[in-house]
């Protein structure tokens, strides 16, 4: 699609693996750890896309790649027609103005010695976009968009004077100051109180809707994104194993991992005590990716071909794909 704001194409990121003493003795080379293993997706302006998976699935590395915080091993991240991985120096600086990140921990990600006004102004000062009265106006506008009104009540306060929700709004305001086209939110609400989470999520989706900002939300919690994301991509060991519109994925999950992940989300309704599909084994380890389908050792539905064939993403319908051999009878390779 040409109207995509962000295009991620066959993205791969490898980290040098640890080489044990035994490996060194046996002159075995260090095996690279493949944290992200060939993922592709697109985000359109005004769209909220959720990357969902357990720790070790590569979702945070993906976020860092999108930010240009590290170069990809292979593949491309194209933002507004520019290849992020190829940028350096001035180009990278220009990119930073268009992609902003909202971090998980609003308690840690604000400098305790800076006032709110200075925190929000910091990106503008770093990039020397505007100064003087215009800078002030931009700061006020950003704080207003982040819902911190009346602005005057917040400008001169220090982070420790604010609640967790307010701090996360300050982080978002600092991200908005540069008027970015893409926001990457890494677990934006997991550290916040339950009663405040909805407000932050509502704010992010309103920003997408009203300002046409693309939002990539990275989370392990399906329930928090269910009401906010337009599309969901479920990741497992560096791959997207299922990808589609939110309702499609929630109502009709095709990959056994997505099904299991959905079944273990606790639902606040005691009459719906479901039998969760609890996967055995431990959290997946990206330094030891199984052969064939990478999910087969934990898969309750695995059959003889799974340990040998690595399934590609196959179309369930034109907008919904999943990478499971069980789909072969019904779907075609995408």
């Amino acid at each position: 699609m040409t109207d995509a704001l962000l295009t991620v194409d066959s993205l791969v990121k490898e980290f040098p693996g640890r080489r044990s003493f035994a490996d060194w003795l046996a002159r075995r080379p260090a095996m690279p750890v493949r944290a992200v293993d060939g993922i592709s997706f697109e985000v359109r302006p005004g769209e909220v896309m959720a990357l969902v998976g357990e720790s070790g699935c590569g979702k945070t590395t993906t976020g860092n790649l999108l930010m240009g915080l590290m170069p990809p091993t292979r593949g491309r991240v194209v933002l507004n027609g520019e290849d992020v991985g190829r940028l350096s120096g001035r180009g990278l600086l220009r990119l930073r103005r268009r992609v902003q990140m909202v971090f998980q921990d609003p308690y840690e990600s604000l400098n305790p010695r800076m006032r709110v006004g200075d925190i929000v102004a910091e990106p503008l000062r770093v990039h020397k976009v505007v100064a003087g009265a215009e800078l002030k106006a931009r700061v006020v506008a950003a704080l207003t968009s982040a819902g911190l009104t009346p602005v005057e009540a917040y400008l001169r306060r220090y982070p420790f004077e604010l609640s967790g929700g307010q701090r996360q709004r300050v982080v978002i305001a600092a991200g908005l100051a540069l008027e970015p086209t893409l926001l990457i939110a890494d677990e934006p609400v997991s550290m916040l109180d339950v009663s405040i989470r909805a407000d932050i999520l509502n704010l992010l989706s309103a920003l997408a809707r009203d300002k046409g900002i693309g939002v990539v939300m990275i989370t392990h919690d399906l329930s928090t994104v269910a009401a906010y994301a337009d599309r969901i991509a479920v990741m497992y060991l560096g791959r997207i194993v299922e990808h589609g519109p939110t309702r499609e994925v929630l109502d009709n999950p095709k990959h056994p991992y997505a099904q299991a992940l959905l079944s273990v989300v606790p639902v606040p309704d005691p009459s719906l005590r479901r039998r969760p599909v609890i996967l055995g084994g431990e959290a997946p380890d990206p330094s030891r990716i199984p052969t064939g389908c990478r999910f087969h050792p934990r898969c309750p539905l695995a059959f003889d071909r799974c340990p040998t064939v690595d399934p590609p993403l196959m179309a369930v319908n034109p907008s919904h794909q999943a990478a499971c051999l069980l789909l072969e009878e019904h779907g075609q390779p995408a």
Binding site: S195, I196, R197, T246
Partner: peptide
């Protein structure tokens, strides 16, 4: 009541979530 309204529910993903205004 408010807490339940602010809590996401996968069984009813269309129900809009409402945060509780203010802070504890």
């Amino acid at each position: 009541q408010q807490l339940l309204l602010s809590f996401p529910d996968l069984a009813h993903p269309d129900r809009p979530l409402r945060g509780i205004p203010g802070t504890p």
